[in-house]
Design a protein around this nucleic acid. Sequence first.
DNA 1: CTCTATGCAAATCTTTTGCACGAAC
DNA 2: GTTCGTGCAAAAGATTTGCATAGAG
Lengths: 148, 148
Amino acid sequence: MDGQASAPATSTDPVEDVLGLLRARGGRATPARRLLLAALLQPGHHSAEQIAASVHARAPDVHLTTIYRNLDELERLHVIDRTYVSNSPATYHLASAAHGHLACETCGAILELPDDAFQGLADAAKAIHGFTISPSHFAIPGYCSRCQ
Amino acid sequence: MDGQASAPATSTDPVEDVLGLLRARGGRATPARRLLLAALLQPGHHSAEQIAASVHARAPDVHLTTIYRNLDELERLHVIDRTYVSNSPATYHLASAAHGHLACETCGAILELPDDAFQGLADAAKAIHGFTISPSHFAIPGYCSRCQ
DNA sequence: CTCTATGCAAATCTTTTGCACGAAC
DNA sequence: GTTCGTGCAAAAGATTTGCATAGAG
């Protein structure tokens, strides 16, 4: 039903799509940002260091500082989510894949949990404290099936 | 009904009680540990720095390193729980007061949640991944009633 | 005396910040 | 040309580690 001939409303390239968001905010399209977005587009969870490595593969001169600054900005634009894993480095992933995370304290594996698994918790937090949780911004520590 | 004359099975002083645990493991009772435990005995959540300040009030020579090492060991003995709050300093509290935590991303307030609020989440993690969560080892970010 | 705990210093790791230059619009 | 993004260096904060000494048992 859909054809490649008739272009979608936004864009044909998700990278350019996000760059459009940046430009709408007065931001600019730079090579570093294209590479960063390309790295984030790969499914899974990425640490800042991992993303840097991916960017460096094509542009060795891009500084880690730049990675962090762009990650911050993309988070502000709700393009990506930053997930904290105990005191380990944070991981980032596209916001469109919003979900909760489980992090094994032993082997470090990161598992995903559907958002509705947090419903009861969200309800309790709201009912007891009027608190709204951010399910995709943290990882729940524990032990995976192989490590417990 | 209880008298100070007839000592309970464990001890009359919670500090000495824990020291007993330490000694049972070949550990030793030091002034630094007594002060550390005294600080932890106060209700609420404490950061390492906060605990250090409390200890320093009586023993200025106790080094931050010692605080961290003892905190680690007490965690290993399950005397205390360490709770991670995003990328902020971890907080510690007695394990007997096990509960979940909510941390406001705006004002930094830490609220407590009864353990059974995590039941649905725990069940889902177990059912989907065979994963066992540690409800008291992390704080869930979000927005409190005053900040959202 | 033997083994553990401590003090001290320095390293580690992740993330942030200040400043001057170069690029995007 | 003006503003924003970047590279570089250095700071920042929290926590860890190595080593020699002091203290508990």
